[in-house]
Write a protein that binds this DNA or RNA. Structure first.
Lengths: 335, 335
DNA sequence: TTTTCTTGCGTTACCGGTCCCGGAACTTCC
DNA sequence: GGAAGTTCCGGGACCGGTAACGCAAGAAAA
């Protein structure tokens, strides 16, 4: 045992009476070792409590067995987002059996992109999953061009090279939500949209517009920024301009809670007077009064696919396609 | 440049016309290098875009420059918890300037503790921050005994060795909440408590009890599990047993939303008939109707301290004290 | 029986850094 | 002017693994 800590290959070899190379073979499950030798070595490993040194291994194999989860946004509001939490679960669950570790890279401050890019280029991780919400970040483009396996969690806006991405079908999801409102007899439908520099904001608006134009109905749009405050302002504006709305599709649950509150303040009952549909099916959806009808995304599946695709790319596959998954309308009390 | 990737010390040395050792000195900011040599080397580093190889460095220094964030709970509900998100921000922000990376370790499945412990013992990280919510986990005790710098995010229950921990004063926070209810004239006060195998559940109940006994008032307690469903059941039970309550302290915001809903279903107005105070000041607090009066924790500060203490321990300090921070009552509309 | 192939294992050269040690050049002091 | 320090830098031995290569012994083929 070296003075500071864990035993090495060398010591295992000595105890088992074989060479380092043989121990290495056993550890890595090479088939070309006699079963009795394997047993011998394994006994020695057990006795010493040997754990391979990751650094040494990484040095020679040039693989780090770790992947990065990159959140290139200073205001990592992303975290409170249950969407993110679920995705993380999926990623982590998929990575667990592979002995790959998850390294979290949060962008600490605004213009500190260099640091991030340097790190990723430095070969510290085998690949990266990028949680990109805002499309305007010019970082995204640079990330996409890095000589490193990368997967995006949403189709990155403003990136003109082919990338691999996993996303939910926001257009169809939003469309379904609006169609539900139509199906329960609502005709004066407005939407509180998200910011247009995020695919989620953009696509959900498109879905609303598509459903409205298919139904031959006029649009009523106000823009929020996916936060509660922004949602409130948008709701006020929307209701001021269109006081006769009988249904509202809100681009995410958080803003939907604000819409519910504004409606309640104005004495309009939900769903009797105005029906409301959100998007995300986050915890928020069941904490409101009435409970929110909303569009659920298969978050954990997204995480799983993100990890699987990344692992495949690390393994050498050349994937640049974008996978898109379906959503599910969860009907509760608000519509 | 070696065929696969980034330049090495060797190449920088060659370009600068000095030895590897000298480049290493410059990279590590040794003062014993001539300024002109430094300039020379730095130019070469810039020209080549040299980034030190972490693995090689870790191999010889025996420091990995990475710390683990351990979430030893299979149901990582922790994540959706904005409490956790804020803490993570603090941790990440503190770690950023130190070149230490954050490795996320989620417990993938129930009995898979071995894996976690092995990893931590394997010298893959320099230290660990443990987000321990449930005290019953026997893992905590084992974690505490690991020969590795560790800091707990809350006083770990059931651990009998001295550990470093950072926490909020849940007892005083809860007490303040109850005292607020008293100060606005409420006298029939109940509480929806959290599970007693978490310090947060335990201490907040203690705070309630202490305030009640100080006021000479009888207690009314129902137990939830910090989830919305559990909160709802507890609320129903509490109100069935004590229909005349005029104030309720709820041990976290999520359960408080359920309490609000149950009250609304029973036609009891908040705060007119029943005043409600939550705990956490999460996003939820402003999405309810009425907005929730609640106890705010300095989450980001907690994260910062967690990281700072860990860094100090890694640096050799022998800290086993527990730091406790104050809370702040945020008065909104529900009480 | 000799040759060739296979199998199982040891030898050894790396991977890319850090750091101890020693030496050259230049000061400083007697 | 020579001895003793300083200062700055290079040489080289590691750290703990992996993998190419080689070699001995037994099996299969001639």
């Amino acid at each position: 045992m070296n003075d500071s800590g864990s035993p090495t290959l060398e010591q295992v070899a000595a105890l088992a009476g074989v060479s380092r190379a043989t121990v290495s073979r056993v550890v890595n499950g090479s088939p070309k070792v006699l079963p009795e030798t394997v047993a011998l070595v394994e006994r020695a490993i057990g006795a010493l409590g040997y754990v391979p040194n990751r650094a040494a291994r990484a040095l020679v194999t040039r693989r780090t067995d770790s992947v990065a989860m990159v959140v290139p946004e200073p205001d990592s509001r992303v975290f409170s987002d249950p969407f993110f939490a679920g995705m993380l679960r999926g990623v982590s669950r998929t990575l667990a059996p592979t002995s790959s570790q998850l390294v979290l890279l949060l962008e600490p401050a605004e213009g500190d992109d260099r640091r991030l890019l340097r790190y990723l280029r430095g070969g510290h991780v085998d690949g990266a999953i990028v949680i990109s919400h805002h499309g305007r970040d010019n970082v995204l483009q640079e990330l996409a061009q890095l000589p490193l396996p990368i997967v995006f969690s949403a189709r990155p806006l403003g990136v003109d090279v082919p990338v691999a991405s996993v996303d939910v079908d926001n257009v169809v999801g939003a469309k379904t939500a609006v169609e539900h409102l139509l199906s329960i007899g609502r005709r004066k439908l407005g939407t509180v949209a998200g910011p247009l520099d995020m695919t989620a904001g953009l696509d959900r608006l498109t879905g609303y517009q598509s459903a409205m134009s298919a139904a031959g109905l006029p649009e009523a749009v106000a823009y929020g920024d996916f936060t509660a405050d922004g949602g409130e302002q948008a709701a006020v504006k929307l209701l001021d301009e269109h006081p006769d709305l009988d249904g509202i599709f809100v681009a995410n649950d958080l803003m939907a809670t604000a819409v519910l509150r504004v409606l309640s303040e104005r004495g309009r009952r939900v769903p009797a007077d105005v029906a409301v549909v959100g998007f995300d099916d986050s915890v928020l959806a069941t904490t409101t009064t009435p409970k929110l009808t909303t569009v659920r995304q298969p978050v954990e599946l997204l995480g799983t696919r993100l990890a699987e695709i990344l692992l495949a790319k690390i393994g050498g596959a050349d994937l640049t396609s974008s996978e898109v998954y379906g959503t599910e309308l969860i009907v509760r009390d608000s519509a």
